[in-house]
Design a protein around this nucleic acid. Structure first.
Length: 592
RNA sequence: GGUCCGGUAGCUCAGUUGAAUAGAGCAACUGCCUUCUAAGCAGUAGGUCAUUGGUUUGAAUCCAAUCCGGAUCACCA
C-alpha cells in the first residue's frame, strides 16, 4: 500500500480527534512536496480553514504536532508554510520499503479479481498492410490488456478482422486483371504488401477510367460509380455474398496471403490475440436484435421496410439498424458481436480500442444495448484514441503519405544499428545478439513514442524526432537499465541485501520516494486505461536514477552500509524500470 | 448548422478530481569523458497557459461567450 493511502486515514482521524470534524479521505489533497521546501508529502490546508474557523498556520501546527506525536514512527518532522503542511516521512519507512521491495519479483502485481475483461484491438482491413495508426492501436490495446492482467483481471484479447467487403474485392479485381498469376512467393513480396499493391493498382486504374469518362462528358460522381473496374468490384462483392465458388477461392487465397504478412508483423511487434473474429462470419449477426427491438418497441419500422431507432431524446439522431432490403448495417453486426462475445466469455467489461472518429458510433452501440436491457451493456467501454498525424496533416492513402509499419520498423532498426556501431560498446556480441538488440531498441523507441502521449489526444509523428534516441525516449530508459545491470553484474547477488543504515541523502531519498509510487501509478494507469502514465513514470525513474548515480558512486560508496543501500536502490530501480517497460510491451537490454 | 474533442516554450508533449514561483524532451547556447557504459550529467535561455468576462481565499484547471483547428451527424465500414 502506498504511503499516501496510509497517511490519509491518519489525517482523517486527526481531524476527528482534534476538532470533532468528520471528513472523507477524498476530501484531502496530498501532494508530493515541492523540492524547494522541506518535507516529503504535503497536506493542503485551505479547504479546512472555513469549516474549522482556524487559520491555516494554526491548523497546520496542530495537525503536525498530532501526527508527529502520535505516529512518530511514520512522521519525523513537519513545517507549515502558508496553507501547506509539509510532512517528513521517517527514513525508517523508506528503508523498510526498499528492503521489502528490492527483490520482490511480483512488485506491482495484484491478486486475481475473478473478473473478465475483453480487450478488442488492432482490427485491420485485409486489403493492405498495417500502418502507423494501427501501431498506436496495437500498442495501446496490448498495454492496456497487460495493465489489466497485472491488476488481477482475466483478460481476453480479441481482434475483428474486416475480411469482407468492397475493399478486398478491389484488391481481388486488380489481381485478376494485372497479376498474371503472380503470388507473394513468386515475387518475394510480403503477403499483406503484395495484396496492398493491387489495392493501389485498383485505385490507379479506377482514376484512369474515371478521367476518360469525365472527358466523355460524365459527371465526376457518375464516373466514379460507372468506371468498369468499379463495376467489376461491386459485381464481385455480390458474387461473394452469393457464395460463388471461384470468388470465394480467390478471396480465401488473398486473405491467407494477408494473414501471413500480418502474422509476421504481429510477431515482430509482440502483438498477440486470444481470439480472432472474422467479419465474414459475424456480418450476419445481430438480426435477431432487430426482431427483439421491434417487439420491445425500442426500434420502429418505416413504410419502406427499413428499421430505425430514435435517439433524439438522448441528443443523438435517428439511426438505421436494418436496410430496407433486409440486410444489416455496421451497427447491427456490432450488436451481434457484443452478444456473441458475452455468450462466449461472460465478460464484466468489454473494451474497444478504436479511433475517436468512431466516438458517435460507439456511443450509439452502447445506448442501443442499454435500451434493449442487455446485462452487459454497461460494461462496454470505448477506449477512444486520437489519430496519428504527420507534420503535414493526416495520412492519406491517395497521396501516398501513409507510414508503413514494416518500413518504419526497418528504418528504426537501421538507425539503432548505426548508432550502436558508432558507439562500439557491444563489439563482442554475435550477429544474433546484435540483431536482437537492434530490434529491442527500435521497437523500444517506437512503442515509447506512441505510448507516452495520452491516448485520447491526437498526436503528431515527425519522422526525425521520432527516430531520436535521446531524452524522453525508450532507448534512454533502456540505457539506464543497461547501466544498472552493469553495476549489479559487478557484485554477486547474495552480497546485496545487507543492512543499510545511516541517513538518506537527498538524491537517495528522492529516488526511493519515487520508486514507492510504482504500484499507485499502475493502479491509476489501469483505472484510466492510460499507459502514458506508466511511460512518463518510467522516464521519471530513469532520469532520477541517472542524476543519482552520477553524484553518488554505488560500488565505491563511502561505506559498506552506503554501498548496500545503493545496491538495493539500484536493484529496485532496475526492477521498476523493467516492470514499467514490460507493461508497455518494451524489452530492456542487459547491455547496450 | 447540431453534437463532441482540442488550443500550454520555436517544435513534440506533461500538468486539467482547483493549491506554493506552470514542467520535461528536442532544437539553441555553456561547462563536464585517466574513476560503476557520455544513448549521459550539470547549467543558461525560452511562457499574455487562444481571447474576454465570471465563480473562488486561490484558476492553465470550473462556468459563460468569442476566435481558431479537428472529428462526427450516410440504406459506407
Amino acid at each position: 500500500m502506498g504511503i499516501v493511502k496510509q497517511v490519509k486515514p491518519l489525517i482523517v482521524k486527526a481531524l476527528k480527534d482534534l476538532y470533532g470534524h468528520d471528513s472523507q479521505e477524498a476530501d484531502l489533497t496530498i501532494n508530493i512536496t515541492k523540492p524547494e521546501f522541506e518535507g516529503d508529502y504535503t497536506l493542503v490546508l485551505f479547504s479546512f480553514v472555513k469549516v474549522l474557523k482556524k487559520s491555516p498556520e494554526q491548523l497546520g501546527n496542530e495537525i503536525g504536532e498530532y501526527l508527529v506525536g502520535r505516529h512518530g514512527e511514520l512522521f519525523t518532522a513537519f513545517n507549515v508554510i502558508k496553507g501547506f503542511l509539509n510532512l517528513t516521512i521517517a527514513d525508517a519507512y523508506w528503508k523498510g520499503f526498499l528492503q521489502s521491495a528490492f527483490n520482490d519479483k511480483n512488485l506491482g502485481h495484484k491478486k486475481p479479481l475473478e473478473k473478465t475483461v475483453i480487450v478488442e484491438y488492432s482490427s485491420p482491413n485485409t486489403n493492405k498492410p498495417l500502418h502507423l495508426g494501427h501501431l498506436r492501436n496495437n500498442f495501446l490495446g496490448w498495454s492496456v490488456a497487460q495493465l489489466l492482467k497485472t491488476s488481477g483481471y482475466d483478460v481476453v484479447k480479441t481482434a475483428i478482422l474486416n475480411d469482407r467487403g468492397i475493399h478486398i474485392c478491389k484488391s481481388m479485381v486488380a489481381w485478376q486483371r494485372f497479376a498474371n498469376g503472380a503470388t507473394p512467393d513468386s515475387t518475394g513480396i510480403k503477403g499483406d504488401h503484395f495484396v496492398g499493391d493491387y489495392y493501389v493498382m485498383f485505385g490507379t486504374e479506377h482514376k484512369k477510367e474515371m478521367e476518360k469518362l469525365i472527358a466523355d462528358g460524365m459527371s465526376k460522381e457518375d464516373a466514379e460509380k460507372n468506371a468498369p473496374i468499379m463495376k467489376a468490384a461491386q459485381g464481385m462483392l455480390l458474387d461473394w455474398e452469393k457464395g460463388d465458388p471461384e470468388v470465394r477461392t480467390l478471396w480465401q487465397k488473398m486473405n491467407s496471403w494477408v494473414y501471413e504478412g500480418f502474422n509476421e508483423t504481429y510477431a515482430k511487434i509482440g502483438s498477440d490475440f486470444d481470439k480472432n473474429y472474422f467479419e465474414s462470419e459475424t456480418y450476419l449477426l445481430g438480426k435477431e436484435f432487430v426482431e427483439e427491438g421491434l417487439k420491445k418497441g425500442v426500434f420502429y419500422k418505416k413504410e419502406d421496410g427499413s428499421v430505425w431507432i430514435d435517439l433524439t431524446a438522448e441528443g443523438l439522431d435517428e439511426k438505421l439498424v436494418l436496410r430496407k432490403d433486409g440486410t444489416s448495417v455496421y451497427i447491427t453486426q456490432d450488436l451481434g458481436l457484443a452478444e456473441e462475445k458475452f455468450q462466449e466469455f461472460h465478460y464484466d467489461q468489454s473494451i474497444y480500442v478504436i479511433a475517436d472518429e468512431q466516438n458517435y458510433h460507439m456511443k450509439v452501440l452502447k445506448l442501443i444495448l442499454q435500451k434493449l436491457g442487455k446485462p452487459y451493456a454497461d460494461g462496454i467501454y470505448h477506449l477512444s484514441y486520437g489519430l496519428v498525424e504527420l507534420p503535414s496533416g493526416r495520412m492519406k492513402t491517395r497521396e501516398g503519405t501513409v507510414v508503413d509499419a514494416d518500413d518504419l520498423i526497418e528504418e528504426l532498426k537501421k538507425v539503432a544499428r548505426e548508432k550502436t556501431e558508432e558507439l562500439g560498446k557491444v563489439k563482442d556480441f554475435n550477429p544474433g545478439e546484435l540483431n536482437e538488440l537492434y530490434e529491442t531498441i527500435a521497437l523500444g523507441a517506437l512503442k515509447f513514442f506512441l505510448l507516452r502521449v495520452d491516448p485520447k489526444k491526437k498526436m503528431v509523428f515527425n519522422p526525425e524526432d521520432s527516430i531520436d534516441f535521446h531524452g524522453f525516449t525508450g532507448p534512454f530508459i533502456q540505457f539506464i537499465h543497461a547501466r544498472i545491470k552493469s553495476i549489479l553484474r559487478k557484485e554477486s547477488p547474495d552480497h546485496i541485501g545487507g543492512k543499510a543504515n545511516g541517513q538518506l541523502l537527498p538524491k537517495e531519498k528522492e529516488l526511493i520516494v519515487l520508486l514507492e509510487q510504482y504500484s499507485t501509478i499502475i493502479e491509476q494507469a489501469c483505472q484510466d486505461h492510460n499507459p502514458s502514465l506508466v511511460a512518463i513514470y518510467a522516464y521519471d525513474v530513469a532520469k532520477t536514477f541517472s542524476s543519482f548515480y552520477t553524484d553518488h558512486s554505488v560500488l565505491n560508496a563511502e561505506s559498506e552500509q552506503k554501498k548496500q543501500l545503493r545496491l538495493q536502490i539500484s536493484a529496485l530501480t532496475g526492477n521498476v524500470i523493467a516492470g514499467s517497460m514490460s507493461l508497455l510491451g518494451i524489452r530492456v537490454p542487459e547491455r547496450m
